[in-house]
Nucleic acid binder design. Structure first.
Lengths: 149, 149
DNA sequence: TCAAATAATTGCAAAATGCAAATATTTAAG
DNA sequence: CTTAAATATTTGCATTTTGCAATTATTTGA
């Protein structure tokens, strides 16, 4: 258990680099944070501004401005919620969905390349392990439980 | 393979949150980036300013200033390299080493809590899987190979 | 011996951050 | 009902962070 953190540190940093480098799609440059926002909007069901900000653990005022940029870039749409007019619902524009899909594709291509170095059994084991880990983290009381399914 | 990215995204974001929340030690508040810098200095052998900046994929000028803050906080020391006087070698002060160890401990405590939900076999499998993953990523040509062992 | 290369720092202007306050709307209590 | 408290989002503003271009100091190689 001594160097457990170390292997996690290496892993998460590599994925961080991956995300960092994977932020250009169709001539549009996207910051790392913007990429995360697009991903999150894409994966939540009609999320409010607050929901996405929480999921990404970002200050709501900062997030509000980040959304403004994405709207200016025509990647995100903000629609008033008819049930509660304080709330704005976020969604991707056609262009935003395209960019998100493109980034997704780039990252999956990288993951596929990584997994191509393993046999089927190893690959299954690794994927099952990560799911196990995610479940365990979701149950943990110490940290980081609240957002994300 | 469809949702492979998704499980990685969840995992890395959870660890990101963990790091974010684990950045206070002995009354000293540390930013996420500062925590990564301390970790990296601690794990490299007499690294130069440039080496650490590269490992963390940070712009060298930004990094130079981050080091300046850490020196002001008395967590990092900068020593001229006798072999090449353009170079400065970074190391942790006693206090910096203490802070780094404390953060390490907090993160390991969290990891232990997570693993306590698994049996020995699962735990071994998960750890072996992550090592496998790290090796595969290190070999990959697509992305993110250069820094880090 | 001197021009090119390298390591690190600084100037500066642009971008990101987050607290406090403002706005708009909803909820709940009397 | 009416109105005060609560909630969702946005803006004002001051601070911090960022990164390109230029600078300094040193080393390397022709």
């Amino acid at each position: 258990m001594e160097n457990t953190r170390e292997i996690f540190q290496i892993m998460t940093r590599r994925f961080g680099l991956l995300n960092k480098s994977c932020c250009s799609a169709g001539g549009i440059d996207i910051s790392l944070i913007q990429s995360h926002i697009l991903y999150e909007i894409d994966h939540q069901h009609k999320p409010s501004v607050q929901k996405v900000a929480e999921a990404l653990d970002t200050d709501i005022t900062t997030f509000s401005r980040q959304i403004q940029s994405l709207i200016k870039m025509n990647l995100v749409k903000k629609t008033p919620d008819p049930d509660d007019r304080r709330v704005y619902v976020l969604s991707l524009t056609t262009e935003g969905a395209f960019v998100a899909a493109s980034i997704d594709q780039q990252i999956n291509a990288y993951l596929n390349e990584i997994f191509s170095q393993m046999n089927e059994f190893e690959k299954d084991t690794v994927i099952r392990s990560i799911k196990l880990l995610n479940d365990a983290m979701a149950k943990s009381s110490v940290c980081c439980t609240s957002p994300m399914g």
